[in-house]
Write a protein that binds this DNA or RNA. Structure first.
Lengths: 220, 220
DNA sequence: TTTAAAACCCCCTATGTAGGGGGTTTTTCA
DNA sequence: TGAAAAACCCCCTACATAGGGGGTTTTAAA
């Protein structure tokens, strides 16, 4: 069956892991109807290339990158080139990241441990139906929405002091020692802890540590 | 120039990210003289396949995997199939990991953000010279050795029970509750904790949690 | 300029965590 | 097959953590 024409859909691949990127490029080139227009290390790279009139139809985008990450890049694309479809490729499977990406304008979210057929499906789906949801991701989204309905899920915003406290929490210092480091009384540290327990819905220091790591408050 | 024969070198690719894995497989298959014998999700998978007499000559191995990680796998291969050459593929570029891998028997260490030519070089080098060192990695090794002279850095190996304990440690359960989950007495859990404190050079639960995350024992 | 919230700090108590002593049973291996 | 090592479990204590009560001072806003 011959489709519209010999005009292939142009894809950009943005990932800082060269090996994965070139491998992906080969994969996409092997797909019927798709061709790789450009590869880039990060969002900044992509932006430069686009402004030099290399404009792809689909951007296959990693989340974690140096310089200009997936979030920023999606936002910039959505604002300046809304017709470019962003398909996110990520190892992170938490609802927050997924939801954030869709909010910023992504058309699809693909986990890195899917197979190449799923990638082809995703590309087709994004082109034809303007959106792609894998079973796993839509499950996550739905379960994420459930939480959003009853509790008015105001995004958890931490100030710099709380973030500093969280970073100390991820060390082997006791709260008393953290108090010294932050030039506060231990009692005040108790209040910070309690307030974060409430905000983050945890009830132990381990809970704080896990939150800090999952949300990039501290480096692993 | 025609080499030995039509006998291609058989490569195994072990990585839990299916997309990267299959993409890598295509890449390797496209190389002259190499063919992919098998792909696997983790070390356990590989072990099973090898014991079913699918024995590759080179194993291209990810470090972070569920079930049986790169460290364990390298060790097992080195012990049971010493002629199989292990080429490690990792995103982690810290000396400790690199050194650990070489100590356990790896023949080469490749960062994921290298290009496919470097991969080809690495494969050739491992086959011909029995070892592969990229410029970056050898630099790291040299600077790492400086530190290692005084401290006799033996690689830290954890068994499955310890890993299970570590995973529970990253939850908000108390040690007493962890004891119930693992069908052990709280006192035994104390011993596990103490033993891990010594092995991992930490002295608090937070220390355990941070180790578990840094070393991929638990998922973030 | 009053008022409310936020940021800070004191007391107390119960449970959790970390570390010490002791011991038995099972596994390993020389 | 006997000794050592590993895995399991008991007791105890001291400090850390988590949670409750109270309070003052600073900041923001009505």
């Amino acid at each position: 069956m011959i489709t519209k024409a010999n005009k292939k859909i142009q894809v950009a691949i943005i990932d800082d892991h060269i090996l994965l990127r070139t491998a992906l490029a080969r994969l996409v080139n092997s797909f019927d109807g798709y061709t790789v227009l450009l590869e880039a290390d990060n969002g900044k790279d992509l932006r430069n290339r686009i402004m030099q009139h290399q404009v792809p139809e689909i951007v296959l985008l990693d989340v974690n990158m140096p310089e200009m990450d997936g979030f920023e890049t999606t936002q910039w694309l959505h604002k300046n080139y809304p017709h470019i479809k962003v398909l996110v490729l990520s190892m992170m499977s938490d609802e927050r990241t997924i939801i954030k990406m869709f909010r910023l304008g992504a058309k699809g979210y693909l986990l890195k441990n899917t197979d190449h057929e799923e990638l082809k499906k995703a590309l087709d789906s994004v082109m034809n139906k303007n959106v792609y949801l894998s079973e796993y991701v839509s499950d996550k989204l739905v379960s994420g929405l459930h939480k959003d309905v009853d509790k008015d899920e105001s995004p958890i915003l931490l100030n710099e002091k709380e973030r500093e406290f969280l970073r100390w929490t991820c060390t082997e210092l006791s709260y008393k020692e953290i108090a010294e480091k932050m030039f506060l009384s231990p009692r005040t540290i108790d209040d910070y802890r309690q307030s974060l327990f409430n905000k983050l819905k945890v009830h132990s220091r381990v809970g704080l540590v896990m939150y800090a790591i999952k949300n990039g408050v501290t480096e692993v």
